[in-house]
Design a protein around this nucleic acid. Structure first.
Lengths: 366, 366
DNA sequence: GCCCTTGCCGAAACCGGTTTCGGTATTCAC
DNA sequence: GTGAATACCGAAACCGGTTTCGGCAAGGGC
């Protein structure tokens, strides 16, 4: 057999060794080898050990697609992301992907990515990837409070892990960063600096993280016995413009807050403009703390104090959970919550004015 | 047969129709059907048409992995990116991926992505993906002047398309954005505004784009008959800090430039700090034009005038070229060059000082 | 009218795995 | 010592495709 040129060989790449080669080498039937490698109970332990040892020695790696045609699984994890929605995660996509792929390739899995420009296309793409066996399961980036995708995947019987929680967690595996703990910590920190009137600007209600972060804010306010009036926490901002408007609105209150906690960095960055227009300095007359850790936050003057999300770690955990899910573990056992890490910059600090003084100052300027 | 439960069926997903189903439906042998669908010449045209029509009607899609075990190809394109190198492309990764996947899925291909943290791992990963048949070919993001990866892929006989050109283009397919045209246009634009002393800060020499962009700058300088002295164009900056240092250096020349063209946005953004320290206003005493279009450029005051790269389009073209390459087209026929598009913001404009006046002003301030 | 092409298709082998089925050899109970 | 259960493995079918090979029928040349 030596020296023969197999047909499928690309020039330069030595031929991969197949299960047939291994079986011939061992003097066993290839079915026996297959069962030995997959831990079937009807193979003697000694044989099993011998096969596995020899397989490693020869560098045998089963071809996942060949396995897949019988088993239906190809050791690949799927990721579909929407291109039509603004996504705070985008700057971290690279980190996120590297987290997923590092974990995946450590176990010889691969990552298939696709994009979709609408919800319909999104669902169709999932269906197609499963149908074509290009993905054994999915990572769902960002969750809605009520998430249609979940129903679809459940119905299809496709394993998945969410990045984020959702209203109806039953049968769902997930990894999430505790935004609620972060928001709570933010309020406590501001309170420790001397702030007593602390506002909160939430993310859009459709996203589940908004619900949770608002809970964290509220918990801290209650815990501290601070004023929990609706006008301080009923605004929403996920863009620069919205953040600017929300800040303007809060500063126009009879008794304005001396600190604002934003659910998202992008919203928070609008506060700079609103403050500048009114002659206020961020970090002195008005403190700001947000959440996400986007790079633009470092370019603001002063820098944005925010909670950084470790996207690499998130990808790593999500991949690990998904692979276990696909192998059959129960979703209830596959849930992890990680903390966000505060990165203090210059946008928060002890208030130089009381809310009343701030109101006077703003009135005088107007 | 109706009502039987095939084993591989996941609950909820109707069974996919196979080539056997199709053959039975048509009353043909499955081999015949396969040849008909793949355009073999020994099938009657009428039969071929009949088969293809029926296949479409029944929604038959061949399972790429099943094809792959015989043909060695699985209609998947590979993308491996380095996580250990700073990469200007990162903010656009999302756009880039969506460009690739949209084009790919239009022809029922998929994208497999992986990451590597070193050059060695990078090459090993390519090898593994080919070996495991998870990728039929690769898109290489960003090219070095002398690129080892290319030699490895050539040797492995693996098809690839580069995003960017390289010193030795033989046998290479590529798509690139004309950085040289952009740099040339930048100089012409500044000249049109009245600048006569225009400096250039290049990217790192290892990257091929640096070589090309420098050529573009030089071509314009020559074309305009401007002063082509080395001290105006021998600096390099790809980070904020380096850009700041380069700007400081240029402003300390006996006859400083009134405008600087940067090969990269990230370097250019360092100019703001250098200018501020010397009491200069960007866009007035010192004009800046750069290249990349990163989002931070819009946050600078004034905004950075830069050349935007259409990453979505790049991904689209690269995927298209790679698929054609894998199908066997010659690399010489698979090369495309696209222009970058200028986005004027506030960082450039007519000079308010001559170089000599600028020198005096800087001396006075020091 | 015969022979030789040529066109067209069926049958079967093949790709690299997994899984089912059945048959030996050994062990155990009695 | 015999019968039955058990442990272990080989043979073959199977998954969904592609490719090779060979054979039949129609058509063309003489």
């Amino acid at each position: 057999m030596r020296g023969e040129q197999p047909k499928n060989q690309r020039p330069g790449s030595r031929r991969r060794i197949t299960i047939n080669d291994l079986a011939a080498d061992l003097g066993l039937a290839k079915g026996t080898v297959s069962r030995a490698l997959n831990g079937y109970p009807d193979i003697a332990e000694t044989t099993q050990a011998r096969v596995q040892k020899r397989a490693k020695a020869l560098g045998y790696m089963p071809l996942s697609q060949a396995q897949g045609i019988r088993t239906g699984r190809t050791r690949s994890i799927g990721l579909v992301f929407r291109t039509d929605l603004p996504n705070a995660q985008r700057p971290f996509l690279s980190e996120f992907l590297s987290g997923i792929t590092q974990r995946a390739s450590a176990e010889n899995w691969t990552l298939t990515v696709a994009t979709a420009a609408s919800e319909h296309e999104f669902i169709e793409t999932h269906r197609r990837l499963v149908d074509e066996r290009k993905a054994d399961g999915f990572i769902l980036p960002r969750t809605d409070v009520v998430d249609r995708r979940i129903d679809v995947l459940r119905e299809m019987g496709t394993p998945f892990v969410m990045f984020g929680r959702t209203a109806n967690d039953t049968d769902c595996a997930w990894f999430d960063i505790s935004g609620e703990a972060a928001m709570q910590e933010a309020v406590l920190r501001l309170h420790g600096q001397g702030h007593r009137r602390i506002a909160y600007v939430n993310g859009e209600a459709r996203y589940n993280f908004s619900r949770l972060r608002a809970q964290g804010y509220r918990a801290a306010i209650k815990q501290l016995g601070l004023d929990d009036c609706a006008e301080l926490s009923d605004l929403t901002a996920m863009s620069h413009a919205e953040g600017r408007a929300a800040t303007a609105r809060l500063l126009s209150l009879p008794l304005p807050p001396t600190a604002i906690v934003f659910a998202t960095d992008r919203g928070a960055l609008g506060a700079w403009e609103a403050a500048m227009e009114r002659g206020l300095t961020i970090g002195r007359e008005l403190s700001v703390i947000a959440y996400d850790g986007i790079p633009e936050g470092t370019y603001a003057k002063p820098g944005l104090t925010t909670f950084d999300v470790d996207s690499h770690h998130a990808g790593d955990r999500l991949a690990a959970l998904l692979m276990r899910r696909i192998r059959g573990e129960a979703p209830e056992d596959l849930r992890e919550l990680a903390p966000a890490k505060l990165t203090p910059r210059g946008s928060d600090g002890p208030p130089v004015l009381t809310p009343a003084e701030l109101a006077d100052r703003l009135k005088a300027a107007a």
